[in-house]
Design a protein around this nucleic acid. Structure first.
Lengths: 243, 243, 243, 243
DNA sequence: AATGAATGAGCGTTCATTCAT
DNA sequence: GATGAATGAACGCTCATTCAT
């Protein structure tokens, strides 16, 4: 269809806008997120942006949405890892950490979404979509936890729901990265290898909940690396720093 | 002294400005942090603010500083808890979580500091002071970890430093709260009782590292509560939600 | 061309801004040069000004530039006067004086440029252009002096360069006007006919340097008038006061 | 009288204020003329300044007044030089130029007085006093011209008044210095030795009007120097650049 | 007489948004 | 659909002036 070709074109332009917008946020932070800068970078006028997004906030949410989609894909891939329940959980931890480290921009966007009037101003359907997308990711992880329980690898206190457990693990990884990314400012560089200690902590957290097979030493290092290479070799190459 | 009375007054006004500034950030987010809004709220002119702070960024850092000071005090109090090393660590976890939950504004301020040109523009001496204040808090926690090792309650992998361990635990608590405080926005309320699962996760993380005495069940709940009542009863009352 | 029409419109607006800006300076002095006042006078918003000039200083320099361009044109016209070298020099004196008297605003602008941080803040290419434009005018005058020497109408002390001689004459005319334009303020009106005495002084200065043909009496009055009518009749009519 | 001692003290403070104010203008230009900077430099509060001057403009005018007084003194001294009428006139030229070169601040002040609303806002009696002080100086010079005519050294066209002649000469010197002081900005440095060419031009202007004894060559250089040493040796030493 | 915190109008500048073309 | 000039409210900041102490 001729129309379809045109729609395709529009779609491409939208994604170009999103891509450039994300790059701006990443390099300039909140204050770099100006429509003029984005328009210039793309080579269109500011007015054109409004043919694609009804306001600035809608654009921000579109950027966020893309991140969430991407992350969901990674989590899905990780959850499908063929192995023990503990290995699948490990794969998810690897996915989240890798995402956090490669997609620094994602945090910037989240900050913006949180810090301003974004959520209020943006199109409500986009808001719901974003919430849903995020919920899917956590749901998948909770599914792995349930599998572990079913398979007898994990025994939970009666009053702890899988979603809650996910919340704890996820907090550890994301919180760690969040602190790390602040290092240059408020925090003295806590550790040069914050990734390693974060992975170790997550691994020991699984132990703490009795997720079998319990760790016997430093094997987490080998396991995460092998999962990384199997599932995310391409993405891993994008990572400039050490793992 | 007459002089002292006047200085007292000035001091009070400064703290009033800081207080109102924080309140604005809390209620309005990044965009609430405008000098006009703060001035109007206090009932003074914008010019007056400049008699107390040389620029906007200096004010932001003053707000942050107050938070950091307060948190440091809580951490110090917790580290002085009389009990086993594990109890002292637990006390610290309680302190951090309580602070995070009472001082939501603190996160907002940190976001602002991170997201803009604050760090560059602000008075360098204030920047250093803030860094130092933050470093003190983490240092105290690392001290408790070292005590545990010395006392034989904790045995570490050779290549993990106490500061790194602290980094992991701190990440869990702060990350958890950070996600929680976003609930209304991006995340569906993960759990009504995010605090409880966070405390449980932290507790199990200690187990995972073999910090003795290992937990045998749900006793963490009793322990944190008793510490809370002993050390932070007054502060606890400020907490509107359930513990 | 449609494009040209639009560009024409933009160009016109720019010149409108410059025109109004100059008028404000003329009527209100330094403090008339505020963007708000200019915008209101034109009937646009302050923001609009920034679509045409990147900062206040750029606008100031644009105003100055227009003056310098105009003056250069007059000097060029005068230097092309067909007559003896002394007549050509006289024509230049007439041009400078006429410019000074018609373009009072020019002095105000120069004051502003000198008194503030204009030169530092403005676009460097505009600064260079202004310098160059000014240099061209003095260069033309020096050329006339050289012609006079070549033609044997003028004999110089060995150590005086034409440019230096120009400096002296120019000083007399501009300094005279500068004092005159201050009359209403600090100086009592020195003379109702400051122009005439200035012209006479300049004329006698030429005599003092032996520029032939030497004056024999009051013929300078006739000569300047005839030059005025031949070269600057249109501009002369703009002059409200007597010559 | 005890009162007198106190008044003396007040007077001294006023002069201190004036002195500092002038220094600020000299070093910082128009924008350096802020009450805060002046107050800090003196070591008093801004409020105190208002016990001595009713508004900023009054202070500016007081600064100007001091300059005018000083210059008048120099002109008087020069007019009393014992020698021919031409030598006395030369002495005055030397005085004006020296003043212009040493008292750069004077021009800055005049600019400020001219450029703003100073004249309107300032106390009217101060305005009149300043005008009067300025008139006295020109009157003295006109007196020397009259002496020259009486003594037969100078013959004037019937329709030129001594005051007008003074206006021409004065214009040359002050205009020259004015252009010179702009060198670094709009004008290319016209000449390294603008003083010398200015003096030569003034000297030749006297020749042009037939003021005897006419110059025969470069003797103006010797004459101005000897006058300078005789009348203004102390002041000359303040001059950093070459004469 | 001296203080200096408070004032408040004013400044130059930015930027998301609109709309005539 | 794309443009980009115009908008106008908001921003951070300055500073001459006032006035309670």
């Amino acid at each position: 269809m001729g129309l379809s070709a045109k729609q395709q074109q529009i779609r491409e332009r939208e994604q170009q806008i999103i891509r450039v917008a994300r790059a701006q946020v990443l390099s300039e932070g909140y204050h770099g997120f100006g429509l003029e800068a984005i328009a210039v970078e793309i080579g269109v006028s500011r007015g054109t942006l409004y043919n694609h997004f009804s306001c600035k906030e809608d654009l921000i949410l579109a950027v966020l949405m893309e991140s969430l989609e991407l992350r969901l894909g990674w989590v899905q891939r990780a959850a499908s890892f063929r192995g023990t329940s503990r290995q699948r959980m490990t794969a998810i931890l690897v996915a989240i950490e890798l995402f956090a480290r490669i997609r620094t921009d994602h945090y910037r966007i989240e900050e913006i979404v949180r810090s301003g009037t974004v959520w209020e101003k943006a199109n409500s359907e986009k808001r719901i979509a974003a919430s849903h997308m995020n919920g899917q990711a956590t749901g998948i992880v909770a599914g792995v936890v349930r599998d572990a329980i079913v398979q007898g690898d994990l025994e939970f206190p009666a009053d702890v729901k899988p979603e809650e457990f996910v919340f704890g693990v996820w907090s550890l990884i994301e919180g760690g990265f969040s602190i790390h990314s602040n290092s240059g400012r408020l925090w003295q560089p806590m550790t040069k290898q914050s990734g390693r200690i974060l992975r170790l902590s997550a691994w020991r957290l699984l132990d703490g909940f009795g997720w079998k097979p319990l760790s016997t030493g430093e094997e987490f290092s080998d396991q995460t690396e092998s999962i990384l290479k199997e599932l995310f070799s391409a993405e891993f190459r994008l990572l400039k720093q050490d793992w």
